[in-house]
Structure formats: C-alpha cells, structure tokens
Write a protein that binds this DNA or RNA. Structure first.
Lengths: 258, 258
DNA sequence: CTACAATGTTCGCTTTGCGAACGCTGTCAA
DNA sequence: TTGACAGCGTTCGCAAAGCGAACATTGTAG
C-alpha cells in the first residue's frame, strides 16, 4: 500500500476541523461553505462537516448560507490570557506607558509568517485608532513590529521565515526585495530598535523594540504615529518610552514562557 | 444494533477535540493528559489524540507531561474581534467612559451558564485590577453583570439557565437560594439596572446596565468598585455613566448581531 | 524491595467520515 | 422560453480512521 504514512496519534478529522475554524479572519468575517472549503483547501463535504460541528459546539453561527464566528471563541483566548496573567502583569504596564507617551502601545509575536498582536493599550486621546486588537494579525515585512521580531531570530531563520512570506506592496514606499528587508532587520538587530516609515500605511511611522530576552521566542513592543514635524525628537522620545516599557515587562517576567 | 442515533453531518472526533481545547481555563492553565481526559469526560486515549493534534496544529504546547495553551489561540479570537469591529466601535467607547468615570468598564454576555467578558476598557487609573480580560468567564449568580444578563432573558428562561448553574458561595453575603437570586433579577429587569454588593468579592460593589435592545441576545455593560463612603452617590454617578455608555453602543449598532 | 495506583501508549475491531456522484438553484445565450 | 452550464449544498458505499481494552511505564506508599 502506497498510502501516505499516517500518524495514529493525530486525529486528522480534528486537524481538518481546526483548519475550518482558522480560516475566519478579518478579511472574511462570514463565508459560505464553498468558500470555507476553498480557503481551507478541503473538499466541500469535509468543510461542511467541520462547519456543522462548529455550529453545534457554538463556535460558529449560521445565517442562511453564511457562517460566522460567535463570541464563544473569545473564551478560548480567555483561557490563555488568564493563564498568563495578562490582565494583571501585561495590560497595566502597557496602559501606563501608553498614557505617558500619549500613544497606543502594542505587544506582539510571530505566528505563521505574520505578526500576532498579543495585547494592546488604548489610550483615550484624540489620535487615530487602527482597529487592531489582541489576536489581530498584521504583515511581517513592512511593519516595525515584524522587522523587530525577525531581528530576534537567528539570521538564517529570519531569512527563511521571510522567504516563506509573500511580500505585498502596501504603499509606494514598501520595500519589495527580501534582501533590502533583511538589511533593515539586521540594522534593527544591531541597534536594538526598529523604525519604519510609510511602508504599511502612508504617512505613518512605526516604532518597535524587543521585549523577550535574546535567544527566547521573540516578543516585541511597538507603537505607531503620523509623521510629525520633528521626526528625530519623536523617535527618540517614543523609543525611550518603549524601552522602559519593555524593561518593565522583562523584569516582571511577564512574557518569559510564551 | 442499538447504537445511539448518530448524525452523519457532525464529526464526533472534531467535537471531542474541541472539548479538549475548551477545558483549558483560568483555574487550570496547564494539565496532564489524564487531567484533560477527566475534565473533558473522555477516554484518556481519546484525549491524548486530541491533545497531540492540538500540539501539532500549534494551539497547545507540551512541556514534559504538562500541556498548556499557546498564544495562537488569540488568533481565533482576533478573527471575531476584527469581524465585529471591536477595535473601532466598542473599545474606544468603553475607554472614553471609563476615563470619565475613573473606573474600568466591561462588556459581557451569557455563555454556557457563565458571564463571558467581551471587552474591557483599558484605562490607566490608580485603582485595583481584577485580572480579567476579554474572554474571561465569571460566575453568573453573584455578579451584577450576570444578574443583569439574566434580566435580559424571558423570566422562564432565566430561571432555567440559573437552575442549570451551580451556585457556589463566594462570600458570606452570597445569596444561596435560586428564588432569592431570581427576585433580584426581576428587580433589575424592572429598574433597568443592577447593583450587587459583596456577593462575589467582599467589600466590592458591582454595577450593570443593559446594552442590547429588548428581545435580542442580552449584552450588558458594568463596572465594579470598593464600597465608598457615599454608596448612593457613587451608585447614581456610575449607573448614569454606564447608561450613557450603553446608549452610545446601541446607537453605534456595535453589538446588534452577536 | 514489593505492591499498588495512576499515567501514558499500543493495536485489533468497529465506526466514522471521505469524496465521487447527485440534485438543486441561479445565470447567461440562443 | 428553453437549454446548457457553473457553482452550490447534500447523500451514501466503502476505505481508513480512531475507540478503548489491554499493556507498558512511571510515581508512591508501606
């Protein structure tokens, strides 16, 4: 029999079902069965069973032929957040620094070739809101968070991760060549911080610093703001604030075992 | 064969796997296989396959014999939060009112006999932090949020939900009798708000008001604070603030299709 | 050191769920 | 109007996936 070697310890039906759950993201909040099947690379019948099971378990809702996530998925994340004491150890620190800097501060890590936002402060101030929350995923190549995360990996691995990522063009200033991006990553690694300008959103500058200790799974903190009249002064002030925030998180051992 | 009727549209392996994922909550952040099996009511072998599949998919991490959630579960919640524009429509409103009231404001709904926190303001105030975040689940019977949620259900259904819930005793002042609790729920329904004192945490008073329109899935907003020197004045101020917050969320249609 | 209890892992037998095939619904051209 | 077609949701026979009793392994008490 030339059937592909199959691990008896893994439940393939379960894995396929999880893939169905995972296709729901920001771009496609509600989908038909056929769309789910296409996105998850499964047969329509398989996707259907997975989706119906999720409906029965209460994680999906069915409106006519459209399927969408229910709030119950939050409970899954809640388990993680409470287990790691995010509410006590992480969020208050982010909030305090955000208030002081008058800017939103975000904590992030790598996940499957994207930047996964772990937590975010929300300072109430007249500034723009990007609509991202904990659990949002943003591109790797053209954000300061993403490049700082890559800088936390060994050079070879960073290159590999980047190579496995598509590099879309968000703005006219987005770097297109992997080599150019890796150069910025190397620079970030040397400097211990990363600044990106207008590569993801035009006119917006992003700042990021490492939080995790070297060698560990990279975790970074960052923020972003419209480019002001004194770019250098802004950068210095914000990076200094982020460094303080990162140091405090490190000292509290808030992110050591992620 | 007298086997129980089995729906061919539902994947039982997938459902069992989901149950494994769902047992990870705040009280038990990391568990052994046997513990997972016990909690999910499954055979150890079945729980093992589910857990190993989750490890392979990156949702669980295995440290020796302990299993715990990885940050990837946040991405699942992120899909929901982004789809419903929580970052843009809900969070800023909560933050603004929280800042004004100088207290944390929480948005919540019912989920399986518990109160599921949907969002929480992240304001830097001098006060205590309870460590709850979006996705946290708290008891139904002895919190103002829970009682206000029950008040949003038809009376018969509220009684049914409460009957299906265990009523632990958190403090000496926790009401023990379902009838007494339902009385408070009825009062909350009449008044349009709910205040609870010292029934969940001693010395802490909780406040809640409805957000969803009558008849819809109940959604409520609430806050909690140590009992001050002027309970009536505090209550009036906070409830007024919560009502404004709720009205704003209603007008923005931020929570209509949950 | 032995007995015991509790946990993790294997493998034969049964059940589940895969996917080709089907029917249904909307769309376009003749 | 009618026919051909494309895309969708749903069914069912058969292969393979996974259930759980049994076994192996680890931890604990006497």
């Amino acid at each position: 029999m030339a059937t592909a070697e199959q691990d008896r310890n893994i439940s393939s039906s379960f894995a396929k079902g999880l893939a169905v759950l995972a296709v729901f993201d920001a771009e496609t909040p509600s989908m038909t069965l056929a769309e789910i099947a296409r996105r998850s690379g499964q047969d329509r019948a398989t996707a259907r069973r997975g989706a119906l099971t999720l409906v029965q378990a209460g994680y999906l809702r069915q409106d006519g032929r459209m399927l969408s996530l229910t709030p119950r998925v939050l409970a899954l994340a809640g388990g993680f957040l409470q287990a790691n004491q995010f509410g006590r150890r992480v969020q208050p620190v982010l909030n305090r620094h955000a208030r002081q800097l008058e800017i939103e501060v975000t904590l992030a890590m790598l996940d499957q070739g994207r930047v996964l936002l772990l937590a975010q402060s929300t300072v109430e101030h007249g500034h723009i809101t990007y609509g991202f929350t904990a659990g949002s995923r943003i591109p790797l190549a053209h954000t300061s968070l993403g490049r700082m995360l890559l800088a936390g990996l060994p050079e070879a691995e960073a290159a590999k991760v980047l190579a496995a990522t598509e590099i879309p063009r968000h703005t006219g200033q987005s770097l297109a060549e992997p080599e150019a991006i890796l150069e910025r990553v190397a620079k970030a690694r040397e400097q211990g911080y990363c600044v990106t300008d207008s590569e993801f959103e035009a006119g917006i500058t992003g700042y990021a610093v490492p939080v995790s200790r070297p060698g560990r799974t990279p975790i970074v903190a960052g923020c972003s703001a419209p480019r002001g009249s004194q770019p250098e002064a802004d950068a210095e002030r914000l990076l200094r604030g982020l460094q303080l925030c990162a140091a405090e998180l490190r000292q509290a051992e808030a992110v050591d075992h992620l």
